[in-house]
Simulated assay, not measured.
Amino acid sequence: MKPAYRYDLHLPPDYDPGRRYPAIFTLHGKGSNERNMYGLVEPLDSPCIIIGIRGNLPLGAGYQFYELKSLGKPIRELFDTAVRQLEQFIAYATETYAIDPQQRYLLGFSQGAILSMSLALTMGQDQIRGIVALNGYVPEFVKTEYTLQPVAQMPVFISHGEYDSVFPVRIGHETAAYWQTATSACTFKLYPTDHGVSPDNQRDFLSWLKQAFTSHPQGGDTI
């Protein structure tokens, strides 16, 4: 199977294909790229596989996963295709590398956060262990028209900038409220920033990920 996306792969220094590792799939924002996302998770010292997925649609000097009709309104056909292809990519990566299918995490910013939350809802807690969603939202059509899977036990970290000029902070509160009713393990934090990720935000979600790894120890079984 040839994946629909190019990607940036980072394996643990002592990578052993006979073990199973937690995996973090990163999804960048509109006009950015997978290498920018790696900078956010690079300080994570836990042994895990990090896969930065690059959007397959060029946009300026960067990329995107789907195009928009207008701000906050994805072109539905492109969005649906992105969700389907990302589900297939996660399956491809799990088969190709020593990934524990019970420890797959999604981390996204902006457009990547929108897709991370959408994938969490369509794949469910049996396939996605947890997500970090930075400055995003869940499209209304995902909530009402997609087939959603159980997420009641899925750990979720949601953050938003108090002065976000792209998605106003009201959207952050609405997103948090949605997830707080969907799962018993939702963390929501606001930061005094615009549409970006502050050092405090990075520190907090890295700490959250480390704790998530600890609460679900990695397997040491051989293949």
Score class of each variant (00 low, 15 high):
F141N: 04
H216V: 12
S165T: 06
T147K: 08
L11C: 09
R20C: 08
Q64P: 09
G60L: 02
D80R: 08
I171P: 00
Y105H: 09
D80G: 09
W208P: 14
L40M: 12
L11N: 07
P74G: 10
H173F: 10
Y5E: 00
G219R: 15
H216A: 14
T187D: 06
S207K: 15
P43M: 03
N56Q: 05
G72Y: 04
K2S: 10
V142M: 12
I114M: 08
Q103M: 15
I75T: 01
L190P: 07
Q153E: 15
Y66P: 06
P150K: 10
W208L: 10
R54H: 06
R129D: 10
I49C: 13
G172M: 03
I223G: 08
V132I: 15
W179Q: 08
Y15V: 05
D100P: 13
L59G: 05
Y92I: 01
Q111G: 06
T94W: 02
G130E: 03
T96D: 08
L11A: 09
R203S: 12
S32C: 10
Q202H: 11
Y38L: 13
E77T: 13
V197G: 04
S32M: 08
T94V: 02
F167R: 02
S198V: 11
Q125F: 04
M117F: 02
E42W: 10
A98H: 05
W179A: 08
V83Y: 04
I223M: 04
R170Y: 10
R84H: 09
P13F: 08
D204A: 14
V197L: 04
E34Y: 03
R20P: 04
G72N: 02
Y38H: 14
Y7L: 10
K30G: 07
F25D: 02
P17H: 11
E95P: 07
P199L: 07
L107G: 12
M154Q: 12
G60A: 06
Y5T: 13
D100K: 14
D221K: 13
A120V: 13
Y163N: 08
Q202A: 14
R170P: 00
N56G: 07
A113H: 03
T187K: 03
Y105V: 15
V156W: 00
V166S: 12
Q88L: 12
A113W: 02
R170F: 11
D14W: 06
Y21G: 14
E145P: 10
F205D: 03
I51A: 15
E95T: 14
Q149G: 07
I51M: 15
L107E: 11
A133V: 12
G60F: 00
P3E: 00
S215D: 14
D8T: 11
A61N: 11
D194L: 13
G172S: 10
A152C: 08
I223E: 02
S110H: 08
L78R: 09
Y191S: 14
T81N: 06
D221H: 15
Y163V: 01
L190E: 12
A82C: 03
D200F: 13
A212I: 00
T122K: 07
M37H: 07
H195E: 01
Y105K: 00
Q88F: 04
I99Y: 08
P168A: 05
G196N: 10
Q202C: 11
E95F: 07
F79V: 00
G161R: 01
K189L: 09
G112Y: 04
Y66K: 03
S110W: 04
A93W: 05
H10L: 06
V166G: 11
I51H: 14
I90G: 12
H173P: 03
L44Y: 03
I131M: 01
L78Y: 04
L107V: 15
D204C: 14
N201G: 13
